[in-house]
């Protein structure tokens, strides 16, 4: 299989970036996108070039480490699928691909396709937890949680922190990410007490990091690899209002 690649190269955060062209004609349709980049990098290294810096770890869609923009699509051409789970059979033989990093003010580019998503960690640090110390917990079955609520909490908790929601949003808003964590914890009885403080602190941190505001375009929900629902944002706004 043959593909013409134009891959984003940028040597540092403040350097100018550009697309670099590579033509590969010995690809296998069952390769994943990171495997294709491994293959390309081996060639580059052997011809004493500088390999493309990119990150991916689990390669099964759960760690949230990977994520590129491919021909304008966040993560790639299949909605709800991380880049590491996109295989070349999703492309046509001979197709041209433009591969670039997720772009957002709050996610500075470190090198080539590698971005800095530590802003997400700082949002969690601001309040994305339940304040329980080790040893304080009561017997687990003293807290009853009905099946639907447990499932709903799971749906919100499933976020992998990849940042696709920010990358796809024209405002580069982190509302889907933030609201999912706010709701996961605040809808559970264990997390209710800290709910108002949590939403305040997390939203303030989100603003401080330079993410944009949400205008409900709904793009985030469409591409989220874990299918996190935009109703989380509605719930967050309600909590913010009543806090």
């Amino acid at each position: 299989m043959k593909l013409e690649l134009h891959v984003w190269r940028q040597s540092g955060q403040f350097e100018k970036g550009y697309f670099e062209k590579h033509v590969l004609d010995d690809l296998d349709e069952h390769m994943s996108v990171p495997e294709m980049l491994d293959h390309l990098n081996t060639k580059i290294i052997k011809s004493t070039g500088s390999p493309i810096a990119f990150e991916s770890d689990c390669r099964e869609g759960i760690c949230g480490q990977c994520g590129f923009v491919i021909n304008g699509d966040i993560h790639g051409p299949i909605n709800g699928t991380t880049t590491c789970q996109i295989h070349l059979r999703s492309f046509d033989d001979g197709q041209t691909l433009f591969i670039e990093p997720f772009r957002a003010k709050a996610f500075p580019i470190k090198k080539d396709l590698v971005i800095d998503r530590s802003a997400f960690d700082r949002i969690i640090q601001a309040g994305g937890y339940i304040g329980v110390n080790t040893g304080q917990a009561s017997e687990a079955n003293t807290i009853l949680i009905n099946h639907e609520l447990a499932e709903k909490a799971f749906d919100a908790a499933a976020c992998i922190g990849c940042g696709a929601c920010v990358a796809v949003c024209k405002n580069a808003s982190a509302m889907l990410f933030t609201s999912a964590k706010v709701n996961h914890l605040s809808m559970l009885p264990q997390g209710e007490l800290e709910a108002s403080q949590r939403v305040t602190n997390m939203v303030n941190q989100m603003d401080e990091e330079g993410f944009g505001s949400c205008t409900y375009t709904g793009e985030c929900e469409k591409i989220c690899p874990q299918g996190i629902s935009i109703t989380n944002i509605v719930d967050l706004n309600r909590r913010w209002f009543w806090k």
Partner: peptide, 22 residues
């Protein structure tokens, strides 16, 4: 056993029966 208690207190959404029990 304590680990399950700790995780539930942290908000880990383990699967539940319809009755609300783990």
């Amino acid at each position: 056993m304590s680990l399950i208690d700790q995780a539930v207190a942290q908000g880990v959404p383990f699967a539940r029966e319809y009755s609300g029990y783990l």
